[in-house]
Design a protein around this nucleic acid. Structure first.
Length: 425
RNA sequence: GGAGUAGUACUCAAGAGGCUGAAGAGGCGCCCCUGCUAAGGGUGUAGACCGGGAAACCGGUGCGAGGGUUCAAAUCCCUCCUACUCCGCCA
């Protein structure tokens, strides 16, 4: 959500941004919301005048009663009643206008950073940089589910019976490796100065609608029957929701948090659930990082954050690259975003394992997250990034550490979390 | 899950239909004092959001959230949320 003052003073900037994002269909919304806003303000001025009159008269009535001038008071009472009758319709219209304006403001995308490459959709995302040499061994690497199954690490028959498609039982050393990676990811971020946090895994609907769009909510979130609760799709939801409606102390900024949670996603929509394997599933686990800082510091933090994830995967010997999200593929709330992709020696291409975004102050505006400034309170910047999402990260580690005989070398940094085990076979 | 109590500004807290946008205190600013222990005294100031205004300032909303009663609600009524105490149940 952008500042409505920009629409009032510089609507061309909004139009230009819409064009950059290939959302010409939303151009009429600009004039529409400007007009609604003008009407709303005029109406507010008029209604405020009436409310002032009502307040004044009510005060007078009180005084008159104390003086025992009942008849005069009755006259005024009638007058206030008339004002209230008028206000009923006006207040109804005020509420309607306010709701309409809000609805449109939610649809108008955040301003993208000047550095964001212009492009229509994900086919025009831009590779920024590669880290590590993408190696292809001279032997074939099997599909990840086959690797895990051979090592007795996966039981999808059972999960199919208990929970249906899109779930899994991870077993034995593979399950342990998965947990080891998450524990290592946690400690990795703690060593970078982030505060570890285990958040609620369910959140209320008002928090959900604060952190995502209505469509996202329908396509992603599982609702608990008979309760106003949703399973989180990522801990970002509870971590940003944590600060909803809060005024933070300036000296506390930046807030740097790393959170663990299981993540639940319906995955309704374009891709759906993969039949085999554990790449796209209804349930996974994730170590996340979020930063809340001043707007002027947000780009620095953005650049630090994706670098953390790159360093994390490099410490596991996984080659990665950063892929910058082009203007048309960038979600409406985001200022700038890149995916961290891991190398798949099997597919001989990179695949997404994480995503780093700065939302500027858009999310903070939506959720009313402010900091107490010298003069005025101001909206803060919010950023989020994946440290590790697994089993997806597990796939990357397995493929890149796969031996011809079907065994997997455990990266050195994970061995302390595996009881010293060096190889899974 | 049952029963009771409570929720007021950054924090603590008074208020129990009109004179309360809210006393008082902490805090914060300034000044003074200082051989009694991270102390004392004086004085000033603020407070969230929206609209108008160059500004001073003016107006509206706002006392956990949402409704209702009333000319008028922090104050009365209803629903919900949260915290605490007791009971029950249970990792």
């Amino acid at each position: 959500m952008i500042d409505i003052n920009v629409l009032r003073n510089d609507p061309d900037r909004v139009r230009e941004n819409l064009k950059k994002k290939f959302q010409e269909n939303k151009l009429p919304l600009v004039d529409e919301v400007i007009e609604l806003d003008e009407r709303n303000r005029a109406l507010k001025t008029e209604a405020d005048g009436l409310r002032q009159k009502r307040n004044e008269n009510s005060d007078k009535i009180g005084l008159l009663f104390r003086e025992g001038k009942k008849e005069e008071a009755e006259v005024l009472k009638q007058e206030v009643k008339n004002i209230n009758d008028k206000l009923v319709d006006m207040e109804k219209e005020e509420a309607e206008l306010g709701a309409k304006i809000k609805e449109i403001m939610y649809k108008i995308p955040n301003f993208i950073d000047d550095s964001v490459p212009i492009g229509k959709d994900d086919t025009e995302n831009v590779e920024v940089e590669r880290f590590g040499e993408p190696k292809v061994p001279n032997y074939e690497i099997p599909y990840h589910a086959d690797i895990i199954s051979k090592l007795n690490g996966l039981d999808k028959d059972s999960s199919g019976r208990t929970s249906g498609n899109g779930f899994y039982y991870l077993m034995g050393d593979i399950a342990r490796l998965h947990s080891a990676m998450l524990a290592y990811a946690r400690d990795f971020m703690i060593s970078k100065g982030f505060t570890y946090c285990i958040p609620p895994f369910m959140i209320r609907s008002d928090v959900v609608s604060g952190v995502m769009s209505f469509e996202e909510m329908n396509n992603m979130m599982y609702k608990i029957e008979g309760e106003d609760l949703y399973l989180i799709g990522t801990s970002e939801h509870s971590m940003i929701g944590k600060f909803k409606g809060q005024i933070l102390k300036e000296e506390e900024l930046p807030l740097t948090l790393t959170s663990y949670s299981p993540c639940f996603r319906k995955e309704v929509g374009a891709h759906g659930i993969e039949e085999r394997g554990v790449y796209r599933v209804h349930q996974f686990e994730k170590q996340e990082m979020i930063v809340i800082c001043k707007m002027e510091d947000s780009m620095d933090w953005y650049n630090k954050m994706w670098q953390f994830t790159v360093d994390f995967f490099r410490s596991l010997d996984v080659p990665v690259r950063t892929l910058e999200c082009c203007s048309g593929d960038l979600a409406d709330l985001k200022v700038k975003s890149c995916d961290i992709e891991a190398w798949s020696p099997r597919q001989q291409k990179y695949f997404e394992v994480g995503s780093c975004s700065t939302l500027g102050d858009a999310q903070a505006r939506r959720l009313s997250i402010r900091a107490k400034g010298e003069k005025d309170n101001y909206f803060v910047a919010t950023l989020n990034n994946t440290v590790l999402a697994s089993p997806r990260g597990l796939i990357a580690v397995m493929e890149n550490n796969y031996n011809e005989d079907g065994s997997i070398n455990i990266p050195e940094v994970l061995r302390p979390y595996m009881g010293g085990l060096e190889i899974i076979k």
